[in-house]
Simulated scan of single mutants.
Amino acid sequence: MTDEPVGGVRVCRVFLVDDHAVFRSGVRAELAGQTGIEVVGEAGSVAEAVAGIGRVRPDVVLLDVHMPDGGGVAVLRSVLGADPSGAPATYGAPATSGTADASGTSEAPVSTFLALSVSDAAEDVIAVIRGGARGYVTKTISGGELADAVRRVADGDAVFSPRLAGFVLDAFARAAPGPEERGEPVHDPEVDSLTPREKEVLRLLARGYTYKEIAEKLFISVKTVETHASNVLRKTQQSNRHALTRWAQSRHLD
C-alpha cells in the first residue's frame, strides 16, 4: 500500500479492468465508500489495461478473466512477463518494494493482481493464478468483502472465494494431467471454433442455468444469451440443450 496516510489509514490504490463499463461503475461505487481504498484508474480492454497500469502503477489491479482481446491472462503476461507454462515457483508473487537497477535508479513496485470474475471454472482460476495473480474472487462478492480482499492481497495474502482455493491447491500439489494423459485429443476443432464468451455460455448452460440466469451472471441481455446459445448449437452440431450438455461433459467443459 502507499505510505501516504489518510486520517491515519494507509490508502490502497486500485485499478479496475473489465470490459463492461456498467460493472466498472458499480465496483467503483462500492469501493468509494470503503476506508483506505482509492480507485485510481480503469480500463475496458487488454491494451488499455497494460497502458494504464504502467502509467498509474496501482497497488492492486482488479482483473476480469474473460475479455474479447485476450482477457486477464493476456494482461498478466504483458505486465508481469508471466511464464505461460505457469511454473509454481513464480505464481502469485506479491508486490515488492522498489529495487534499484545498476544505475541506482529505483523502480516502482510491481502491482498485485486480484482476479474478479463471473466464472468459477477451475481452468480459469488456475490460468490466472499461474499467470501471476495473487487471488481470485467471483462477482457475487459483496462490496465490503471485495474491499477486504483488496487490502489482504495488497498486504501479501492470497485470497480466494469459497471452494476456489481447492482448485489451486490441487493444481500445484500435483501437475494436472494434460489432454494427452486424459486420452483426449490435443485439438478439438469444434471447441476451438467457440469464442471465449460462447464457452462461458456453454458452461453455464451445461450446469443447468436458465437464459435469464446466464444473462444476469454475465451482465448481458437475454437476447444476447440466446444468440450465443444458437451459435454454440450450430458450431457443435448439437440439436438441443440436453445433447449440448452431454457434449460439454464429454469434453470436460461443464
Rank of each mutant, 00 (worst) to 15 (best):
R55M: 13
A95V: 14
E226K: 09
P185Q: 03
D157L: 13
A87G: 04
L63A: 01
I141Y: 10
V232K: 10
G86F: 12
A29T: 13
V153M: 03
H228Y: 15
V201D: 04
S250H: 04
S119M: 12
V39D: 03
G166F: 07
P179F: 09
D192A: 07
V22E: 06
S106Y: 07
A82C: 10
R203Q: 12
A47Q: 03
A215M: 12
D157Y: 12
D83G: 03
A87R: 01
E184L: 04
A229Y: 12
R197S: 04
A176S: 01
I53K: 09
L244D: 05
A248I: 15
P5K: 06
N231D: 13
T138E: 05
T195Y: 09
G8H: 08
P177F: 09
V125L: 08
G178A: 08
G183S: 01
A149P: 09
L114R: 07
E216T: 14
C12L: 08
A51I: 14
G178F: 13
F15N: 01
R246A: 10
V22Q: 10
P189E: 13
V201A: 05
S97Y: 03
S193Y: 08
G81M: 03
P109E: 13
A215F: 07
E4G: 07
A215S: 10
L253A: 06
A206F: 10
V6F: 11
G72F: 00
T112G: 04
L16M: 03
G104E: 07
